[in-house]
Design a binder for these strands. Structure first.
Lengths: 212, 212
DNA sequence: ATTTAAAAATAACAGTGTTAACTTAACTAC
DNA sequence: GTAGTTAAGTTAACACTGTTATTTTTAAAT
């Protein structure tokens, strides 16, 4: 029974209702459980109606993930207030890992799933906006630490430092998310692995071990 | 037209023919392109006949991946002959990265895709057999380097070292495979990132920088 | 020659993303 | 107030997927 003429804000409400339904399935049962029919049922529409709000499934999922990526950026933003550049860097990393491991499905979708390459021009995330772009935040945090003389003098490119540390932390999160239950591997505790990784990064890139 | 009574070795031949067809699609078009019908057509059978040789698609893909994991282990095996423990360790890592980046689809399937957790009891790979089990090789390489006194004395658990270095290298490979074309990120060159990661691992975990 | 059983093919099912066609109801214009 | 327009939604349908049940073909065994 279609009542008509929805205001732009009502349409937005439906859009977010669809996204919320998708997110629910997404978070609790993984992306495979997100079928257009299941989302539609959850939101009380017919499956084909979703196509009035999202051009296809890919865009629906991307919209959900983008929205949560922005949430990640806003969560990380709190660490940007820390005045000491080294502490800011460390806290930033810790928040990142925490996000990844408490939101494994989002993390998987962001960084572990093949997408059509993301075109910043069409993303809902504003690139380089430190409120939204977590990568820009990372570059900023590392660059300011670099300017503060935290890293070994042989390291001259803060972007390269950032990408390397990110890769290391990503590897930790990715293996944990994907292979934590694999009986093949006798994993050391997650805490031990996080600590070891942090220490490797610090001893590897920083001037001197600055933590007791 | 079914000729009858296939010898066990003939059946094995069909099995590997199916796997080869699957691998072809798999490598060149990613796992999404591997449909039972497509594999069947490539091998000249009907789609349902594949089920005479593999109980389902998951097992077919797993068989393909397992076979290539063994190939990885055999490729890595060549590095195990290097007598100097440090050089052995470095070469092992380099071979690993090279495998990952030249076989991105296999690598993605092994380490970046959600599987039902792999039960060693039912795998075609022999666990702890250094001819087949790349993880066992890694543990061995790191442990022998550890016994040779390569690492900082504060590091007392070679398994933890191995898992951490693996995670770091995995992160490098995984980001490269998944996000190399992402316009969001201004990637430094792959070579630079590999070198930076190796240096971070070495300075982070080893007694002294042993490379010029 | 007839039976038997392996090896394969065909038909079919339930489920997927998605498009086309149709319905319903509210707003606009006379 | 009735007719027309069109947004908002639904139902039907298509092409595809993995998979199972049924049926065919064919080589060997009796």
């Amino acid at each position: 029974m279609p009542p008509k003429v929805k205001s732009e804000i009502e349409k937005q409400a439906v859009r977010t209702a669809i996204m919320d339904a998708a997110r629910e399935l997404f978070i609790h049962q993984g992306v495979e459980a997100v079928t257009m029919r299941a989302v539609a049922q959850r939101v009380g529409y017919s499956a084909t109606s979703l196509y009035l709000y999202f051009s296809d499934k890919e865009q629906l999922i991307r919209a959900v993930v983008d929205a949560d990526v922005i949430k990640l950026a806003q969560s990380l933003k709190s660490t940007l207030d820390i005045s000491d550049p080294l502490q800011r860097f460390l806290q930033f990393g810790q928040h990142y890992v925490q996000f990844a491991l408490t939101n494994p499905n989002h993390y998987r979708m962001m960084f572990m799933t093949p997408h059509p390459p993301c075109d910043p021009a069409f993303s809902s995330i504003e690139q380089d906006n430190p409120e939204q772009d977590a990568y820009a935040q990372l570059i900023g945090v590392v660059t300011s630490a670099w300017h503060a003389g935290v890293f070994k003098p042989s390291l001259t490119d803060p972007v390269l430092i950032a990408q390397t540390v990110w890769a290391a932390m990503h590897g930790l999160c990715a293996l944990q998310i994907n292979l934590a239950d694999d009986a093949w591997i006798n994993w050391r505790s997650l805490e031990a692995r996080v600590q070891a990784m942090v220490e490797m990064c610090m001893h590897g890139f920083m001037k001197e071990p600055q933590h007791e």
